[in-house]
Design a protein around this nucleic acid. Sequence first.
RNA 1: CGGGGUGUAGCUCAGCUUGGCUAGAGCGUCUGGUUUGGGACCAGAAGGCCGAAGGUUCGAAUCCUUUCACCCCGACCA
Length: 577
Amino acid sequence: MMRYSQTLIPTVKEVPADAEIISHQLMIRAGLMRKLASGTYIYLPAGLRMLQKVMAIVREEMNATGAQEIVMPVVQPMELWQRTGRDIDYGETLGKFTDRHGRGNVLSPTAEEGFTYLAACELKSYKQLPMNLYQLNTKYRDEFRPRFGVLRSREFMMKDAYSFHANEDCLHKTYMDMYNAYRRVFSRCGLDYVIVLAESGEMGGSGSHQFTVPCDNGEDVIVYTQDNQLAWNIEKAPVDALSKQLPVEVGPVELFHTPKAGKIDDACAYMKVKPYQLIKTLIYKSGEALIVVLVRGDHEVNTEKLTRLMGGAHIEMADEASIVSLTGAAVGFAGPVGLCDKAAEVFIDYGVAAMAVGATGANKTDYHIMNVVPGRDFPLAGPNIRIVDVRNAVEGDTYEGKKLLFKRGIEVGQVFKLGTKYSVKLEANFLDADGVEKPALMGCYGIGINRIIASAIENGHDENGMILPIAIAPWEVIITPAAPDEPVMQAAEQLYKALSEKGVEVLLDDRDLRAGVKFKDADLLGIPIRVTVGKKTLAEGNVEVKPRTEKEASLIPLATAAEAVAAQVTRMKENRR
RNA sequence: CGGGGUGUAGCUCAGCUUGGCUAGAGCGUCUGGUUUGGGACCAGAAGGCCGAAGGUUCGAAUCCUUUCACCCCGACCA
């Protein structure tokens, strides 16, 4: 039971100046939260109720699969992260501090280490497997650039689960259990979502699906085939090899003076060619090894694909000194001619291999070369040379002959098969039935609780405010007495009591304000059902019921209102809208 | 971390170019009154170290230097 006058729901009329996207604006305007600092938010009563509702749904569905809830400390010893190497891999995004004893600590951005540590301590026999543990806990990431309100924040609430298995079949079964539990969670939260194949990235591992809510403000790009049969995160989306261009008669390689044209567009301007006629040469580094990647000038290297080609090794762009020493030229003038045997690995994108002729860097500062024929002027085969798919899909690409389409989305959950990456490093072993000690196979499964709320708002709002699915709305019903009138207030109170007793979550707007203000706030809050008690209608023994999604209210008798509204709430919950 | 922008009342913003009386508006808040079905009206009031520090000047919200915070674009991203 909640009374508006006793609840901190500080709604605001004006759009906050620092809120760019609609979900962020509405979360502030509806009084769900306030910003404490960049990327950190204080959840107020209404916002907290929404979080709690989502968490309750997640808990139910997780428990239903047999997963067990625990809580992991947010502050974890740095030493644990050093053992898996993720203190390095995570880079600056990993929040750290040193305590008074000089011990390094990590603010957990995810919790593979902690859960695997626990497994290493407690896991002994295959008889304990599978084991699936999860937590609902605050995560911290020192994001370079928090933005979009709660969509990319420093601190957020995540459900993370980690499963342990004796064999691949067992892992796959739990993986599918999680996959299906996630479908139920997102459906129950009233989200429209798509499931895409994803890259397991820095997490390491072999398989992954991402649950994404399509939305123009999303940070993820989804690629799907024209027939809607296949979908990927762009990090994963494969492309067909481009067909080989017909050979053309060209003269020998020609040196071209291109002063200061270290950028694609500048070089093109000098040589009067288009970016797609250019061969872009990028130098990456994996440990000490230098890797050369060739893509067409209008294409982008996909670092996830590159990582996979390197067998999951950590890669980064080479530093300036390495590039200069490899190519003998300033950054921006690298080219494949004469470079291929100097690099540890050369990855040539299909798009480049298909070119008949192109222009590229001359490995000489301020010079490019034209009339470069792949296969003639630089090798397309060799012990360190591979022709591969290493770029991002773009408009116009196909996969298996089907056109690829693109849209943006918000990632709300992801499931991964991790393999033994963490269990090996942290020695989470068990004795198998044959008496042999083996590292546990692992899976991990995350859900962004705050993002569920933001994406529900992105996809459910109008000019008056949020339109929330009943499953996650802060209250199911709001009662709005529309006149400061004793009988009106009494009727509202009576209805409030009756509905609450039926287990309906009701907010009674008992504030001494004009009706218009209350209506605006009820709309802003997106409460699915508004019951208005008015002077005139009450005189006839009626109250008004108006779903947030409808324009018009309907009149029902006060005497049976509690039952009717409770029934409507039940119906809406069943319909998930 | 590179590029750009903004910091003035609780919120949204004007004033700054070209330094000069007591620093403004709308919304919100408080008091009194009139109102009461879609963010009412009238009267009154409170509320500011003009982000911070230094400098120039007779005089700084305004010009200069430094610094901090926040926002946007990029890079990065379970």
